[in-house]
Amino acid sequence: MAIAKPTEATRVAKTGWLGRLSDQLWRSPRLLLVLLLLPPIAWLGIVYLGSLFALLIQSFFSIDEFSGLINYKFTLKTYGELFIPANFDIIVRTASMAAIVTLAAIAIAFPIAFFAARYAKGRWKAIFYLGVMLPLWSSYLVKVYAWKLILAKEGILNWGLETLHLSWLLDAWLSLSVIGGNSLSVSYTGTFLVFLYVWLPFMILPIQAALERVPGNYLEASSDLGARPMQTLRTIILPLALPGIIAGSIFTFSLTLGDYIIPQIIGSSRLFIGQAVYAHQGTAGNIPLAAAFSVVPVIIMGFYLWGAKRQGAFDAL
């Protein structure tokens, strides 16, 4: 008699089709699981990976030299074209820029993040966060155009240097080959500065997060044991902050690899990978070469992550 009550409670069937559906799902948890997982898997599988594979397949086609029509036969010819000097230049140029921007971002971001994580307290911490995040809230394009004006031949930077009688310094820098040019805004130096400015927050924040997690007593123990400050930095702080540095460098490196707007507005008009992709599709109709170009950053990032993993950057995750 006593067990009648609970069975009665479960026996009451819900009415309406929604109720029956709910009962059905309760009885077969597997079905529920499939239904819940279907949308994210469909998104990841079809929309995300599917488009990536569509891109990959395109890159194995080739364009017919004579008619300009796409030849739908699998070939590696298009990948071969990436190695002709003009195209290879673009890859080297983009990868070097991404590497230099990343190194410079680490050099600048580390002290800032260190100060924020170790010394800034209370209001100063809030000001730090605001200072780092604020540029991210304004439009990317506005920032880039503003930089164009700052770096222009008749811009504020030149004016400032002129007032300080330091124009000779800038002129000397601009007369250098490769990194120089007619003015900062048409030189690689300018492109570099803008990349550095725009991506810097993406480096500061992960490093700061990593430094916050370094326990203070490790540092005390290190100095108790007689380590000089540099030694502590090299053997304790840097290794423990490495995951943050790697995470930040993944952002700055891949963002620079893929960007096509900054080098179009600031720089010497020499193309970066993103711009090459942009130019080859469209009226040109050279979708295979555009696809092959867009596979390049994927491969570079693949090697980068593999190298980072081998360095143990993800062990702490």
């Binding site: 364009i63 300009g68 003009a86 230049d89 673009i90 008009s269 020499r270 080859h280 040109a284 070469l289």
Partner: peptide, 17 residues
């Protein structure tokens, strides 16, 4: 010379090739 060649060669010219 068709247009797609113009595209790839002009990229080369701007790149200094």
């Amino acid at each position: 010379v068709p247009y797609y060649r113009w595209v790839s060669d002009y990229i080369g010219v701007i790149g200094g090739r």
